[in-house]
């Protein structure tokens, strides 16, 4: 449903993020999660939708499938984690990841096999990235996703349907470092110097600290 507005733009009848969060929270409680877990789910689905990712859709899929399928609840995460034959529940896995983050960030890489609805798990990883102040790289099924401090999610998934299951998923924490090399920086810095003015000797003499003994 649409209608047009003051600037001639067309208004889609949207749900607000606040409605999405509240409804996802209540639905999660109704699906059997505790209130505290449901609060986490509400926040994560809101975040996915804000990033333009299909959070509501996949949460619906998950709740629908949960009635007929069994999911494994992993509460203690290790470097390598495998679930067979039932996939991991992305919510319990996500909450465990958040809760154990201080330990997990010490690992270079963390591996998971068989996660249901990995997009839901991604939203927890995105929040984790913000909490520890490091970008997180996720690789699964030939796809790569960069979780950037919960400010955005960068991926080559655009316009591709998110899978309902991830066979192999690899997580690595990216140490904070520049995205450019020293030459690239020098080149830019040199250009910026063209906005500076050469100081005369007389100006130098009256600048801050002038006339004082630096050893006083």
């Amino acid at each position: 449903m649409t209608s047009s507005g003051s600037t001639g733009q067309v208004f889609k009848k949207m749900k607000s993020l606040s409605e999405i969060e509240t409804t996802a929270k209540r639905a999660s409680k109704a699906a059997g999660f505790s209130w505290g877990e449901s609060e986490e789910i509400g926040k994560c689905i809101r975040q996915l939708e804000m990033f333009g990712l299909p959070g509501v859709k996949h949460l619906n899929y998950y709740f629908r499938d949960k009635e007929n399928n069994t999911y494994e609840n992993l509460s203690l995460i290790n470097v390598s984690n495998s679930s067979s034959p039932n996939p991991y529940c992305p919510i319990i896995l996500g909450i465990s990841f958040l809760d154990q983050l201080k330990i997990l960030e010490n690992y270079e890489k963390i591996y998971f096999t068989n996660i249901a609805y990995p997009i839901i798990f991604l939203s927890f990883l995105s929040r984790s990235s913000e909490i520890i102040g490091k970008k997180i790289n996720v690789k699964f099924d030939k796809k790569e996703i960069l979780l950037n401090l919960n400010v955005n999610i960068y991926s080559n998934f655009l316009n591709i349907e998110f899978p309902k299951n991830s066979k192999n998923l690899e997580i690595s924490f990216i140490e904070n470092k520049d995205n450019f090399n020293e030459n690239e920086w020098e080149s830019l810095y040199k250009l910026s110097e063209n906005t500076f003015v050469e100081e005369t000797d007389s100006l130098k003499k009256s600048a801050a600290g002038a006339g004082l003994t630096d050893n006083d």
């Binding site: 505790s34 505290g36 877990e37 609060e39 509460s75 909450i95 809760d99 154990q100």
Partner: peptide, 17 residues
């Protein structure tokens, strides 16, 4: 740790927060 506590007591998560 609180993480260990919550892994066994998820029903109390909202109140821990």
């Amino acid at each position: 740790t609180v993480a260990e506590f919550l892994s066994k007591n998820s029903k109390l998560r909202h109140i821990v927060r």
